[in-house]
Design a protein around this nucleic acid. Sequence first.
DNA 1: TAGATTGTTAATCGATTAACAATC
DNA 2: TAGATTGTTAATCGATTAACAATC
Lengths: 209, 209
Amino acid sequence: MAGKNISMAVIRRLPKYYRYLGDLLDNDVQRISSKELSEIIGFTASQIRQDLNNFGGFGQQGYGYNIEALHTEIGKILGLDRPYNAILIGAGNLGQAIANYSGFRKAGFEIKGLFDANPKIIGLKIREFEILDSDKIEDFVKENKIDIGILCVPKNGAQELADRLVACGIKGLWNFAPMDLNVPEDIIVENVNLTESLFTLSYLMKEDE
Amino acid sequence: MAGKNISMAVIRRLPKYYRYLGDLLDNDVQRISSKELSEIIGFTASQIRQDLNNFGGFGQQGYGYNIEALHTEIGKILGLDRPYNAILIGAGNLGQAIANYSGFRKAGFEIKGLFDANPKIIGLKIREFEILDSDKIEDFVKENKIDIGILCVPKNGAQELADRLVACGIKGLWNFAPMDLNVPEDIIVENVNLTESLFTLSYLMKEDE
DNA sequence: TAGATTGTTAATCGATTAACAATC
DNA sequence: TAGATTGTTAATCGATTAACAATC
């Protein structure tokens, strides 16, 4: 991939742009200036223009941005125009919540299989999918061209599962286990650490009193 | 609260320090230098010392840091030494996953009640709690000194619930609804936006290929 | 054309890293 | 004491904001 080095700060704002532009589209708004967007999204107009210009000149002087076109462009930048195949490992409440959330499929992420190591729930059906035995992960990943592994398992065992997924060719991990995974540097890991999030809330509430 | 302005960058590293120090404690390690910690946590030694010195001089020259003492101190800084009472609204899969996670209680966060608006699940029992009708939120918050509202509801209705919680005196919101809430500035909101997280993963996988 | 707003360069601000005197 | 490592100041790096010429 070409592209200069985009900072993580910019990258993490992209989904917000995408979401706000989508909301505007839903409300049939057709164009917006960086100043107007600034007022609803909470970034400065200057930052918005800087961010967008990392990827191209999507605006027009004197006019602003066409919302539909910009929304589409940011979707492409985020890679939402291509499909990703995922498997989800750990079909407890959290895993089921994620498997059931329709928003992911709309964005091109398809969960192709659910796995768990617990014999009590192997064989149960969640949506259209039967929960499969974790033993079958390797075969399934290869047969179904799986790109992403979603780890909804406890801390213990998460690293071992990550190793197995990496070994059979997975490229990205969405990690809900409350720990940092050790993976080769070409493997992308996105962590969702609920404990860290809650502790941050705790800190801020304490400071605020 | 006293304390100079601590940047969000520092604040979001605190739970990581707390976690890594806890792991070291579990392994009966007693002391560590910023250089050693640097190697396992992945921040520079300089940054670790800078971060910690925002809150006090916890180390000792020539020795390093006592892990148990530092762990305790960071726990206090995070406000984990005090109890927080929470209610959780939206008792679907995600809500149940959070209600069932024992790690939060260990850190002083007690979920006192679960609420939902869906008559089909009102009355069901999750752990020791019956799911209550969302109508009863206001009375419950006042009677049980609730500090935190955990929003595990869809986008629609999340803002209205936030308004109601703020109106009855809640101080913090842990928001899992995929949108930004509008609240008075003295109310703390910590967002967990799974869609944004997934889109970030998507972007990074695309860039990486 | 006149007005509006972008794209982009320059200035500022803040966060990270480096360096080292203090001291255990 | 000598060696190690902190706490803290200074230097560097990067991100945000401001400004404005270009242009629709």
